[in-house]
Amino acid sequence: MFGRILKAAFFSTALASTAAAGELSIFANGEELATEGFLAPELTRDGWQLNFSNVFVTLSGITAIQAEPPYDAEAGGEPATSVSAGLDPAAPLTIDLTETDEDGRVLLGSIAASAGHHNAISWSVVPATEGEWAGQSMVFVGTATRDGQSVDFTLTSPDRHAYVCGEYVGDERKGFLVEGGEADLEITFHLDHIFGRADVDLDDPMNIDAIGFDPFAAGGTHAIDLSGLHIGHVGEGHCAVVFG
């Protein structure tokens, strides 16, 4: 399959600027909205249940950063990088957010990295250069159901979005790498920023900006415009994003 083929090609190249001390693994996560779907009460903002068979995302330039001072995603711009380590930037990676490990994550790669706190990360969503969905950066394949009506859909986006994020925000802090140790980072895709959520107020900014599913209610293949939507996060932490 498209995603698996490219996955084999990107297992990592270390670009650390100082001697490697340990192994840093980087994961992607589409949360349960990708793996389980939009299920009641978490339907789309316009009341659709969505079940995905594939959520393809093509990534490039995935770089873990030790930023000093810590990166301020609200201010945007470039992080003050002291040390960075990245996956091979020459090989865009397509993953399927529905094909996860037992923790609901997709391993992007493991790289040799320097000791310290990797408190920032950057990556880009880019069009795939080969495979079934070449030219598309995100592809959603699945079934939508509302009021007893079900339609199969394929939504495609060629949009480019570049993200720079600060520290992961979640149940635990991530990115602390000690000599000879292991650590991990995670980039998180919030699909509710695309489709909205019925269990959140309709006047919530997320729902105001979200597209919902009504525009695609006829089923079939549609282009979806993701520009302006803040899909990429680090856990619950927001990122600076540039489109185009």
Partner: peptide, 11 residues
């Protein structure tokens, strides 16, 4: 440094 146009962004 906050950008007032970036809604939904928590600070």
């Amino acid at each position: 440094q906050y950008d007032p146009l970036q809604r939904l962004v928590m600070l």
